[in-house]
């Protein structure tokens, strides 16, 4: 079957089996290998991409269901010459060890900061109303869908806090 969608601003049309996930299309057909296949079951977050601005696990998306959708991958957030605020912060704070989970962490955090700006609460929020402060426990709760087997969590949280300050 054929499906058309936009990836990082570019219109794409792909021919694929009904079983193809968005993750496999991005990596194998479009060559966008920044998005990683970790668990392939929605548990690790390494495959996180933005679909119409929202973070999702691309391993749990059927490509067939994304006709006309707009996808953003790690490649669409910045380039080696022009890093995004979060990419800079991860470099500056050393927010990784092996780096495998990093693209998913950065894509996820990019959307998470938008959710925070929109005032969306989390389970760690003291109140469901009002401004949502971004303390360490909020970052940990809001990023719990991204695992890091090297356990670089303290530095990942520092990088996210740093980028959030730069942005606000």
């Amino acid at each position: 079957m054929r499906t058309r969608f936009t990836v990082n601003g570019e219109p794409r049309e792909v021919e694929h089996d009904t079983r193809a996930t968005l993750l496999d299309i991005l990596r194998d057909q479009l060559g966008l290998t920044g998005t990683k296949k970790g668990c392939d079951h929605g548990q690790c977050g390494a495959c996180t991409v933005l679909v119409n601005g929202k973070r999702v696990n691309s391993c749990l998306c059927l490509a067939a269901m994304h006709e006309d959708d707009e996808m953003t991958t790690i490649e669409g957030l910045g380039s080696p010459e022009a890093l995004s605020a979060l990419q800079k912060a991860f470099v500056s704070q050393d927010g990784y060890q092996c780096g495998f989970c990093t693209p998913g962490q950065i894509v996820s955090a990019t959307a998470m900061l938008e959710e925070l700006r929109a005032g969306d609460p989390s389970f760690a929020s003291a109140s469901l109303e009002g401004e949502m402060p971004l303390d360490d426990s909020e970052i940990a709760e809001r990023m719990s869908g991204n695992l890091c087997r090297c356990s670089a969590y303290p530095l990942i949280r520092e990088a996210i806090a740093m980028a959030a300050e730069v942005k606000s």
Partner: peptide, 23 residues
């Protein structure tokens, strides 16, 4: 929902991850 049925917001936020809850 946050105002009138806060229990529902809390329970949903207690489940899954940000990525899963978006789908």
């Amino acid at each position: 929902v946050r105002e009138g049925w806060p229990l529902l917001s809390r329970a949903i936020l207690a489940g899954a991850s940000g990525q899963i809850r978006n789908k």
